[in-house]
Amino acid sequence: MTPHNELRLLPWSGPDGKPCYLSTDNSTSYLSRLADDTEAIQLDLAADLVAHALEALSSEETQPEELRHLTADLTEALKDTLRVATSRGHRLAAPDVRAHKGNAGPRLPTGAFG
């Protein structure tokens, strides 16, 4: 993977709620590993919360107050998950467009489209 000169969006916000970024080419630095671990925890918590939500929604005994609380928790988990996806998406290597020059991709017959 080629090194990027972009900043890494970290999985936490600053004290004023603004995004935090890390500038490093070292993916094994302390802060990089801390960010990786935090992302993993956030994604695991989101998965657990989705499982809990599925249980709550399938139960006729779930109270409206519990659903409101669950909605708030799901919203926070979704925000964290979107931040992780954005951060990881920015760190993907950009495709080499020169390697694809003149190659428009696969060609399908007209009949393939119905």
Rank of each mutant, 00 (worst) to 15 (best):
M1A: 10
M1T: 06
P3E: 09
P3L: 12
P3Y: 08
H4V: 02
N5I: 02
E6L: 09
L7I: 00
R8H: 08
L10C: 02
P11A: 14
W12A: 02
S13K: 01
P15E: 15
D16I: 03
G17Q: 01
G17T: 01
G17L: 03
K18M: 07
P19I: 02
P19R: 03
C20I: 00
C20R: 13
Y21Q: 03
Y21K: 01
L22G: 02
L22Y: 01
L22I: 01
S23N: 13
T24N: 06
N26T: 06
S27K: 01
S29W: 01
S29R: 01
Y30G: 08
Y30C: 10
Y30M: 12
S32E: 14
S32A: 15
R33D: 09
R33P: 00
A35E: 06
A35P: 00
A35I: 03
D36A: 15
D37F: 11
T38A: 12
T38I: 06
E39N: 11
I41F: 07
I41L: 13
Q42C: 03
L43M: 14
L43P: 00
L43A: 09
L45I: 04
A46H: 11
D48Q: 15
D48I: 02
L49E: 12
L49G: 00
L49H: 05
L49Q: 10
H52R: 13
H52E: 15
A53G: 09
L54H: 07
E55K: 05
E55R: 05
L57Q: 07
L57H: 08
L57F: 14
L57A: 08
S58H: 10
E60N: 12
E61Q: 13
T62M: 08
E65R: 10
E65M: 09
E66I: 10
E66V: 11
R68L: 14
H69K: 14
L70H: 05
L70T: 05
L70V: 04
T71V: 03
A72E: 13
D73R: 14
T75P: 00
A77P: 00
L78F: 11
L78R: 09
D80F: 11
D80E: 10
T81F: 13
R83C: 03
A85N: 08
T86C: 06
T86P: 01
T86Y: 03
S87G: 11
R88A: 07
R88G: 04
G89W: 00
H90T: 04
H90C: 04
R91M: 14
L92D: 02
L92Y: 05
L92R: 14
L92G: 00
A93E: 12
A93F: 07
A93M: 11
A93L: 08
D96M: 05
D96I: 04
D96H: 05
V97C: 07
V97H: 13
A99S: 10
H100V: 10
K101D: 12
K101N: 09
K101M: 11
G102I: 07
G102N: 08
N103C: 05
P106F: 13
P106M: 11
P106W: 14
R107G: 01
P109A: 00
G111Y: 09
G111I: 05
A112G: 06
A112I: 02
F113Q: 04
